[in-house]
Design a binder for these strands. Sequence first.
DNA 1: CATGAAAGTCATCACGA
DNA 2: TCGTGATGACTTTCATG
Lengths: 152, 152
Amino acid sequence: MFNEIDLKILNILQENARTSNADLARAVDLAPSAVLERVRKLERRGVITGYAAHLSPPAVGLSLTAFTFVRVEEAVGATDTGRLLADLPGVLEVHYTAGAAAYLVKVRVADTAALAGLLREMGRIESVRDTNTTIVLETVKETAALPLNHHS
Amino acid sequence: MFNEIDLKILNILQENARTSNADLARAVDLAPSAVLERVRKLERRGVITGYAAHLSPPAVGLSLTAFTFVRVEEAVGATDTGRLLADLPGVLEVHYTAGAAAYLVKVRVADTAALAGLLREMGRIESVRDTNTTIVLETVKETAALPLNHHS
DNA sequence: CATGAAAGTCATCACGA
DNA sequence: TCGTGATGACTTTCATG
């Protein structure tokens, strides 16, 4: 699906999304206009889904990370509960998981009090049976950068 | 720590990291030079940690997401095992968790065969006692954008 | 798909209020 | 901290190979 030039562009943009088009062009040794078209095409094809600044959670007052399993009673395949969970403030990720009908929810909040409040909100959702939370003590690695290989 | 102008800048950049400085300036109604200095300051203070292009995992051949709990036998507080886990290809996140001495590892791979291979790699690490994997069927929400409030 | 030229726009810096 | 103004670089489009 990609040639090596596309891969190089994707890797550079994963590392620094604010790399200028001119710098990209120099890196892959193409004219800026050619690079611009490649990037646009990658965006249009849905390969690049967006560009995000990443902030330091503690720096913005979100010092507590946790993962919560939310067991639900809902028809298999339905994700209505998931969407309700996703809308709660502090919920960054909601994954519907195999096995026990449950969502795995990644949460970032200020402190344990805020976590307690968030769990209470989750419990208020009708279809939620119970929750099981694991608090993160230390994040060793956290990236959104995907490993790209040549036969992608 | 932040005033409303900084918050607005941070929110815009979380949404689109490639927003030009000139557009930022128009959005917050300041001169470009003033905005540039604010952004630089936010970077230097460690509030903004980077800018990343986000790719569609299936579009690059990574269609399987999973979370693996890795129980370890290692001194409390040590994260050597965590770093070894972090270096495995396909491992996006490694969190050391409270409770049972364990890491919660977020993984993205091509398919179940690749997952099996990755789990085998994990098992090869000496300090790893066992692993427990939950496969994601559907990701309802997945963002790195942090909710910012005015008393951050 | 890539190039190169042209027009408009932007990034960046020094300076002053 | 901010605005102004200058300059060199960049972005983007388009005609063309």
